[in-house]
Computed example of a mutant assay.
Amino acid sequence: MATTPNPLKLLPATVDDASEITNLWFAAFTDPEFPQIIPDTPSVRKWLEDANFNDMTKKPFQRYLKVIDTESKDSQGRPRIAAFAKWDLSMPDERGQRYPPWHADMLGQLCDEFFKREEENRKRVMGDTKHFYLDTVATHPDYQRRGAGAMLVKWGCDFADAEKVAAYVDASKDGAPLYAKFGFVDYSKPGEDIASMARR
């Protein structure tokens, strides 16, 4: 029996994709906690788009990847982006600030607490161990469970293996099984809603 070719294809993301991946981010992250931290307002969308653009153009250690659907077009006639990821390939002491200063529409104290907790957990699990950090994986709801996320995770794991370094991701509890398939282990403490996962 002939197999149907997979229309999903993994490619590097470019600055021309900054707006589309920002829109995808808001479509993908609908957990009730996220709108409190990064609310979906036009100005915050612009803030996040600018942050992605800045990382793409000024931080060569940030690798943005996308999975496109070769059989579907977006509003501009380009292949639709099904998912994207941001892998941070820098060393722990080189990363610097993860985000620019919070936008006025955002609850700064809540943002500080949330991302400080993530950073503290990563430090607790990884210490000073050299590792790549899977900063973001976002899959559009239309493409859930079609392998797009796995393609993005596998890219980083293969790169980490080639470089002989570990990898780390802050995962949702729902998303943790995907990372476990690639050898990530959950080191989160009891009661935590974010899975601190490392691949040694």
Rank of each mutant, 00 (worst) to 15 (best):
P100C: 03
K58A: 12
I21E: 07
L152F: 05
R124D: 15
R98T: 14
E71I: 14
I37L: 15
A148W: 04
A2D: 02
V137Q: 08
V169K: 02
P92H: 12
F29A: 01
T129A: 12
W87V: 02
Y64W: 13
P92Y: 06
F61E: 02
T139K: 07
K189H: 06
G149A: 11
V125G: 03
A27S: 06
G147Y: 06
R146N: 08
S90F: 11
F26T: 00
F115R: 03
T30R: 15
D193N: 07
T30G: 15
R78K: 11
G149L: 10
Y99W: 13
T129N: 14
G191N: 04
P60L: 10
D128N: 11
R122F: 02
D93A: 10
K130A: 06
R124K: 03
L65K: 00
L178K: 02
T4C: 06
D186Q: 07
Y179D: 02
A148G: 05
P100W: 06
E119I: 10
D16Y: 10
R95V: 02
S43I: 06
I21L: 12
V185T: 01
T136H: 09
W102K: 14
L134V: 06
R199A: 05
D174K: 01
Q36M: 14
S172A: 01
A162F: 11
A13E: 12
K116M: 08
R145I: 08
F53A: 12
M151Y: 09
V165N: 14
D16L: 13
V137S: 09
V15E: 12
R95Q: 04
G156T: 12
M56Q: 00
S75F: 12
A28T: 03
E163K: 14
A148T: 06
R122W: 05
W102H: 08
D16H: 11
T22H: 13
P60E: 09
D50R: 07
K58N: 12
P101T: 01
A167N: 02
R117C: 00
P12K: 11
Y179E: 02
L107P: 11
H131Y: 09
E71L: 08
E120C: 08
P60Q: 04
G183L: 09
K116P: 11
Q109A: 10
